[in-house]
């Protein structure tokens, strides 16, 4: 019974159910292909979701809406810097992470210095990042270096490399939240910012680091996604705005802040991919698919929140 009390269990139950329903239709054929695809695509959602989770943990009002723009800008500039030259993968990674550092600091500067609500600050800033990406890209589609593309689409011991990266990141985030002083500080800020400040927590430093972390995660996701799909595209991040928020909420992280849930983000990321494949394989059209996805998300959030309220 103890397992059922864990807030992350529901996203995993939902993911397994969606997987089972899809496989049931094909009498078990294609199970490993479906699992592989879920891990690959889920990895990108998990990486941006982990970042968004940290920001949402900061408490009500904290959110980063510039994730898609950061992804696009990081991918565009990284691919441009690499110019498809062999051996430039690390340079590209450095550029991508640098872009994340820059957009994260810029976001927090707007929030802190101009006292803008994060929802406005990050949305407005994302227009700027997107414009820079358009301006620097000029319609060119640069291919990633071959070794990097091979890595992004490759596998190790049957597991996609991108999924390994995302699992390692998730483990790191869990370690920081559960075992380090920064994690304690972040969780304290999310419960009551004033009380945290009065208890000696350097609240502004914690907030700044969190906004930088989400942007760096988004940039890394953008870099990997562009390498995975053979180049950066200007709309490559668009689906990750809703996705990043949905995986956090379905994963059992408290929207009110102060409580993070790392395993739940991964479960929810798999579920978000699997529910679409399930509806696809049952022959639902695009319209029906979107409506049903929305309904399922709302249902899970309601189920998770009423269960929490009863505790």
């Amino acid at each position: 019974m103890k397992l059922l009390q864990k807030p992350w269990i529901w996203s995993w139950v939902a993911a397994v159910a969606a997987f089972g329903l899809t496989i049931a239709l094909t009498q078990g054929r294609g199970a490993s292909e479906l699992g592989y695809a879920a891990l690959s695509f889920g990895a990108f959602a998990a990486i941006v979701g982990l970042g968004q989770m940290l920001v949402i943990t900061l408490g009500p009002g904290n959110i980063d809406l510039s994730i898609p723009a950061s992804m696009t800008l990081a991918a565009t500039l990284a691919l441009k810097a690499m110019g498809a030259e062999p051996g430039s993968a690390w340079l590209g990674l450095l550029v991508a992470l640098g872009v994340g550092l820059g957009t994260g600091l810029a976001n927090f500067a707007l929030i802190w210095a101009l006292r803008l609500p994060p929802i406005i600050a990050t949305l407005a800033a994302s227009l700027v990042y997107q414009s820079i990406a358009i301006w620097s890209n000029r319609g060119l589609r640069i291919k990633p270096p071959e070794a990097l593309a091979d890595f992004a689409t490759g596998r190790m011991a049957g597991v996609p490399n991108v999924a390994i990266v995302a699992v390692v990141l998730a483990a790191l985030v869990w370690l920081v939240l559960e075992r380090t002083i920064w994690g304690r500080w972040l969780l304290a800020c999310g419960q009551n910012l004033r009380a945290a400040r009065l208890a000696g927590v350097p609240v502004e430093a914690v907030r700044a680091a969190t906004y930088v972390a989400v942007a760096v995660f988004a940039s890394l996701a953008g870099y990997l996604l562009a390498s995975f799909s053979g180049g950066a595209a200007l709309n490559m991040g668009s689906e990750y705005l809703l996705m990043s928020i949905a995986v956090v909420v379905i994963g059992g992280t408290s929207i009110a802040g102060g409580m993070s849930n790392v395993p739940g983000v991964w479960g929810a990321s798999l579920f978000m991919f699997l529910v679409v494949s399930m509806l696809n394989s049952y022959g639902a059209g695009a319209g029906v698919r979107m409506v049903l996805t929305g309904v399922i998300i709302i249902g899970i959030v309601i189920a998770a929140s009423t269960r929490r309220a009863r505790q």
Partner: peptide, 18 residues
């Protein structure tokens, strides 16, 4: 409520944060 307690946490975590 306003200045002190971190409501989601245990007694232990509340006591040792500083």
């Amino acid at each position: 409520t306003r200045d002190g307690v971190l409501p989601l946490w245990s007694i232990l975590r509340n006591a040792t944060i500083s």
